[in-house]
Design a protein around this nucleic acid. Structure first.
Lengths: 155, 155
DNA sequence: GCATCTACTGGGCAACATGACTAGTGGTTT
DNA sequence: AAACCACTAGTCATGTTGCCCAGTAGATGC
């Protein structure tokens, strides 16, 4: 789905101040409420905006340590590994990537010591041959989407 | 900050149906509105809930390809590389990790061919010595937080 | 034992936002 | 020329919000 500048500005507005509501957004965008309404509906229907769920910070929940683990998987064990990892709450995200049966997963833990427990739980499974873990020290660019939205709106 | 089961259920509710509002949430939780209100305020003040921004799907915006790039950085060039990468809209996320001046970044692109352009732009910078890229094929566990919230609520 | 705190309930209020609808306008397509 | 589309500007009933209150139950401190 393609978006125009008005869509882009609407998304930006909602990203910066999600609580303003569609009426206030339409005022700031200088369009009629129905227009903003229709644009938002269209963005949601088109899947561009998947939802407005709460953004939870794992650090504030007591999980300040983030790590990425690259897993090497035994041939044919992919499905089992996936369902194993999905049962571990500290696994926030899992991707299968190009390479040799590789997966990449994002982990959080209560401390560096606790990370060991998490990793043991993650890799303590038959289908996983090898794991290498990179601990995140800094996060200079936190997950963001606005620059991409602007880019998409401009063409 | 620690959360209890009521906080956890509130977060779950809002994650599943963000548009219900605090009044409906309080009804479903079986508590007074003021209580739900106070819990939500506390969660936001404590940083557990950072916001309710729109969740934008890059794929729906025309960027269906995701990749993770591991970058090796020249000593002392970290800051320059960070600011370089933050200007690339296709860089959705950037972490510095343990290792030898390593960074991990999440990229999106319009196609596999377009990914080449993005990578060229990312690594076409002096401070970057080497880059290795893993293209995401599947995403069996999309970024999630609810299991962790439940875990945190239960202890 | 008794006072104090804190969190919760249940209620009431005015102000505001929402969804659904209408009629009218201007630009594009066929 | 007719049909179509996105937009404006407005209405309406309904629901929600933010803010207030007094009263209650459980925990903590003296």
């Amino acid at each position: 789905m393609s978006i125009d500048r008005l869509d882009g500005r609407l998304i930006e507005l909602l990203a910066e101040e999600p609580r303003i509501g569609i009426l206030e957004a339409s005022r700031r965008l200088g369009v009629a409420r129905g227009t903003a309404q229709a644009r938002l509906d269209r963005l949601q229907a088109g899947g561009v905006i998947k939802g407005f769920g709460p953004q939870v910070d794992p650090a504030a929940l007591g999980y300040p340590v983030t790590a990425f683990a690259t897993l090497e998987i035994k041939q044919g064990q992919g499905a089992d590994v996936r369902s194993h990892l999905s049962t571990v709450p500290e696994v926030l995200e899992l991707h299968t990537t190009t390479g040799h049966g590789d997966m990449l997963c994002r982990l959080v833990a209560r401390s560096n010591a606790d990370l060991q427990r998490v990793i043991d739980r993650v890799v303590g499974f038959d289908g996983i041959v090898r794991a290498s873990t990179a601990i995140v020290m800094e996060n200079p660019v936190p997950l963001r989407i606005i620059p991409l939205v602007k880019q998409a709106a401009d063409d």
